[in-house]
Every structure is written in C-alpha cells, then in structure tokens.
Amino acid sequence: MVKIKNNFKPPSCFITGIIIGLICGTVFFTLLVCYRIDDYCENIKYLETVIEDKDARLVQLEKSINKNKFILEDIEIYLENMDQELDKLTFKKFIKEKYSSLIGKEVNSIDADMTVEIIDDRIFKLSNKEYQLKVTRLIMTNILKIWIKVSPGKASFDL
C-alpha cells in the first residue's frame, strides 16, 4: 500500500497567510486612503505657497514702515490655569482675533484700559463648557503681552 505523504506544514502555511494578508491589507488601505492623502498634500502645498507669499509681503511691509514710530508688531498671550494644549490654542486664537486690529497701530495711540476691557470678564464657550477670562497683567511695548486667567464654570453674572 502506498503511503500518502503529508505535505501540509502548519507554520509555513501560517506565515504565507500572514504575508498575503499583509499585502492585501496594505493594498486595500492604500487604495482607500490615497485620494485623501493626495488631497491633504495639495492643501499643504497650497498653504505653503500662501505662507511664502504672505511672508514676502510682510518683509516688504516691514521695510516700508517708518522705524522712528513705535508700532505694535505682535501679540503674546499667556494663559493661566490651562493644561490642555489644544484648548490653549483655541483660546489663544480667539483672543488674538479680538486684538488683531491693534497690530500695526502706534503704541502711544493704544489705550491700555480699553485693551484690557476687550477681553476682561468675557465668557468663552468651548465644547459645552463655559470659561470666564480675567486679565491679570498687561505689558505693552512693540509686543503686547497679556496674562489671562481662565476660570471654568458658569459666570456669576449674565451679559
């Protein structure tokens, strides 16, 4: 009687299966995400060109500005009582938007009290939570530095 030789080798079959599975999975996901990645790449390229263009314009504008005048160039915001970086960025963006009109103005013409009032005691809503902003310190040179205390919870007064 002829003995049938068993060629079945479990480890090699398993490894082959894993390799084929990996290749199939990689191919599938490549086809699935390739369009999105291309879209992101296009966006990044577009934004890079926009930044380059704006940088070039900024350099030209800075050159043309009269250096004898004391002009507000930048705003720096320091948040107190904040741990999460993502929330911090959202707050900073919101506050910078409020002060963006001051950039380019002469420092002597900016009223410090009014600058504080813009953001002081404001209530800011972020993901269904309310935060109250309180300006603790303000330094105004060619850079406006503001320290803001962020206290969570509902404010004691209504706007």
Binding site: T30, V33, C34, I37, D38, C41, E42
Partner: peptide, 9 residues
C-alpha cells in the same frame, strides 16, 4: 505612502 509623497499622483 512610506516616502511621504502623494500616493495617487
């Protein structure tokens, strides 16, 4: 994708 290039292109 490995080389950080746009895959579809």
């Amino acid at each position: 994708i490995i080389n950080n290039h746009p895959p579809l292109k």
